[in-house]
Design a protein around this nucleic acid. Structure first.
Lengths: 182, 182
DNA sequence: AACTATACGGAGACACTCTCCGTTTGGCAA
DNA sequence: TTGCCAAACGGAGAGTGTCTCCGTATAGTT
């Protein structure tokens, strides 16, 4: 990539990150990003062929936190319920960190063609590692996809309605108890 | 209301119902509805000041089914778990009957200014009746809003990803077990 | 210094929601 | 029946998005 192209790309992602964090996916226009990064619309769209691709680039580093979170939960010195709840809470928090991300990523869970496909795989693997780690404490037949959807759905609701942390926690507690073996 | 206005309104709702059912909220344009009902855009917007108001009108009758469903569940001859699961399943099925409805209604749950406010109240009341009916079988402190959000979130995920019935059922089973007393 | 692949910018095509306002019409009163 | 006017109509177009096209500029190489 040419040096000017790299510079522009970096600046675009930086500006977009700030805007998305402040206003959420829908409320940010591509024009706004282009103006902020001082590039033309054409340049913006050559780097990121769709708005979702730009969003994906913005979330890049953040996806790496997922594995750290599952490690942390599994290494926790507590009951299976505590470990599970820790992970679910962290997981939901990461999904709601950027407004609009939870619904988008959860919707993409089964779609290999989505710009978020790589992130979905990361998530599913993390949940699988959790299932393996908690082993027999979970109800039989629980799958990674199921947990991803359950928590993704809760995170999307929390995000949409801007719920306080305790409302989210009480919903996650219900999900956690449901996931543990009867 | 003048007779021609009534006729137009009825035709608009009828056309919109068919379109929304077939394509979902986002994929239907107001122009399309106007063309289909053979009215101008101005007429459409006089009857329904926003697209969501039209959607609300389309869902009108359907909201009445909610109370019937909660009655059915409570009068069921079975365990509390069976009653709860029956209701959650019916509830989720009603939310996913129209593409896009689950996410919209769930997002409106705490917003009295939404066009869906009346429907939200109906839902919340239905869940409250369920809580009263099941009484001590549920975990302490469960609220109607909580159940509405939990199931609304699941329904939204199911709707977005077009999940098969058994995938939805397995998620609802987790939620149901979580809601029952430990 | 010349050359070319690469990248740039911004006008504008296209799709949407929603508004404004001149025109038409249903329903009533004389 | 006729005349009136409040109520209703229709559609052009304002405003706001996403994304494309293509003539122009420039980085990096020879």
């Amino acid at each position: 990539m040419r040096a000017d192209a790299q510079r522009n790309r970096d600046r675009i992602v930086e500006v977009a990150r700030a805007l998305f964090r402040a206003k959420g996916f829908d409320a940010v226009s591509m024009d706004e990003v282009a103006k902020g990064a001082e590039v033309g619309a054409g340049t913006l769209y050559r780097h990121f062929p769709a708005k979702e691709s730009l969003y994906d680039a913005v979330l890049e580093a953040w996806a790496g936190k997922v594995n750290a979170a599952v490690d942390r939960a599994l290494s926790l010195d507590g009951s299976a319920r505590e470990q599970l709840l820790t992970w679910l809470t962290d997981y939901a928090a990461m999904l709601t960190e950027h407004k609009g991300a939870a619904a988008r990523i959860t919707a993409a869970l089964g779609d290999p063609g989505s710009p978020f496909a790589a992130k979905c795989t990361t998530y599913l693997n993390a949940n699988q590692r959790l299932i393996d780690g908690l082993d027999s404490a979970l109800r039989p037949g629980v799958e990674a996809m199921q947990i991803s959807r359950l928590v993704g759905g809760m995170a999307a609701v929390a995000d949409n309605s801007e719920l306080p942390a305790d409302a989210v926690a009480s919903m996650l507690a219900v999900v956690a108890d449901g996931l543990l073996a009867p």
